[in-house]
Write a protein that binds this DNA or RNA. Structure first.
Lengths: 238, 238
DNA sequence: GATCCTGAATGACCTAGGTAGCACAGGGCT
DNA sequence: AGCCCTGTGCTACCTAGGTCATTCAGGATC
């Protein structure tokens, strides 16, 4: 068992970037971290037990986890969120304590900080001014879901793909992040399409010189070309 | 200005069915209702000012309001939620205080109870145990949005239409509610399609005897036929 | 009654995107 | 080296659903 002090010094920057617990001072963190322990999950491991998230709440400190849905009939997958360092889960369970029928898969070696759901709820009750951050975080997530719905209804695959790429460009380095090493299949799951179709569109982007493609490797060559393409799409849908 | 006492006696049953304020005793309601006033909005009136909802929070006591999105480019509409008696809005603004770019239109003569956002926030801070209900309500809304996303990705128009119908059947009376008097165009907006396509599918349901159609009037004739049709759709999507 | 206006019904057409199949390339393994 | 496995690239095909245009039907109003 690692002490709260050690957890804090190890993950200080991640914890402070964590919107859900915004504004906590060091001693407040230490108080809270007493209830946390660390877990390591290996790459490609899946969590299919929906119950699990009723009992613990997690903060990711390293690696990516996809949260996805599987259709009972077609067995197709759809990735709802790609969780990264500083993200938390499962917020659905925390909010209303009801089982959340959704799956998780680790895309990298994962480290998480875990706290028993009960302890977190107790802590919230003892520190009610923190509720505000939780509400506001929930608001952000609802907006994300809503904009997801709108995109699905209003825009075609090309547009969704372009937006996905643009949202994951690091502004400083101009490089593609988070999704750059995913196979076409996973890209497809993120925008609600299929491998073949995504590949078809990626080929087009490659041909006009806006991206480079290699095995499990996407690279942005020219952002302005991508933006131009997006404009063109918007125009088409009039 | 109507007194809190009067508001309470007029709308007691609506207020008590309001999940967001679950468990409030009469005197607690009276305390809160002091900050409320009543408004009447006329049928077909629209609210397109996104700012408005930063300053007041509303509870519907009568009539239906649709909350919808419009695509900037195609000008298509999509109805996110059909709000009814006992529903509240805008939760997005309440949660994080950020402008919510969404439109509202009254489908009937509307009565709402309105409270200044600030007053509601103050009241929450004074009664922090109420936060739990707000969190849990937000959770429910997130689940609704998530299942909306899944439906859009996994299922075809027929399935979405069938589910919409089945979700709006009153279990006791076996009659269609809430959406029974909407024109095809509005039905289409609810499931993310177009009038012509929805009509095409409705005709089929009419032909196999599961529904009746008249001008601005949908009627369920045989629920079991609808359920059967749904099964068939699920099977097809294997 | 005559005149509008909105919405329903229908048919013809078009296309984005899903599907299936196969050849091939790279990278890791024994 | 030879093998296997996972992804990619590309073809040819199919169809659900979007689009457009026109006719028809029911209420409401004058």
């Amino acid at each position: 068992m690692i002490s709260a002090e050690d957890l804090y010094s190890n993950y200080q920057s991640t914890l402070n970037s964590c919107e859900l617990f915004a504004g906590l001072k060091k001693d407040q963190w230490l108080d809270l971290l007493n209830h946390f322990h660390e877990e390591k999950w290996s790459k490609n491991s899946c969590i299919i037990n929906h119950q699990k998230f009723l009992f613990h709440f997690y903060i990711i400190t390293r690696g990516r986890i996809k949260m996805y849905n599987v259709d009972d009939f077609s067995h197709k997958e759809h990735t709802l969120f790609l969780l990264k360092k500083g993200d938390v889960f499962d917020l659905f369970c925390l909010l209303d304590g009801i089982k959340h029928k959704v799956y998780y898969e680790c895309l990298d070696e994962i480290r998480v900080l875990a706290i028993p759901m009960e302890k977190l709820r107790e802590w919230l009750n003892k520190n009610p001014w923190q509720y505000e951050h939780f509400l506001s975080y929930a608001g952000g997530m609802m907006r994300a879901l809503e904009s997801n719905v709108s995109q699905l209804i209003f825009t075609n695959i090309t547009t969704r793909l372009l937006k996905l790429l643009l949202e994951n460009v690091n502004l400083k380095s101009q490089k593609l992040e988070h999704i750059n090493d995913l196979p076409n299949k996973e890209i497809a799951n993120l925008i609600g399409s299929t491998r073949a179709v995504v590949n078809r569109h990626l080929q087009q982007l490659k041909q006009n010189g806006s991206i480079n493609i290699a095995r499990n490797q996407l690279e942005i060559r020219d952002i302005s070309l991508l933006l131009e393409e997006l404009e063109k799409q918007n125009g088409n849908q009039k």
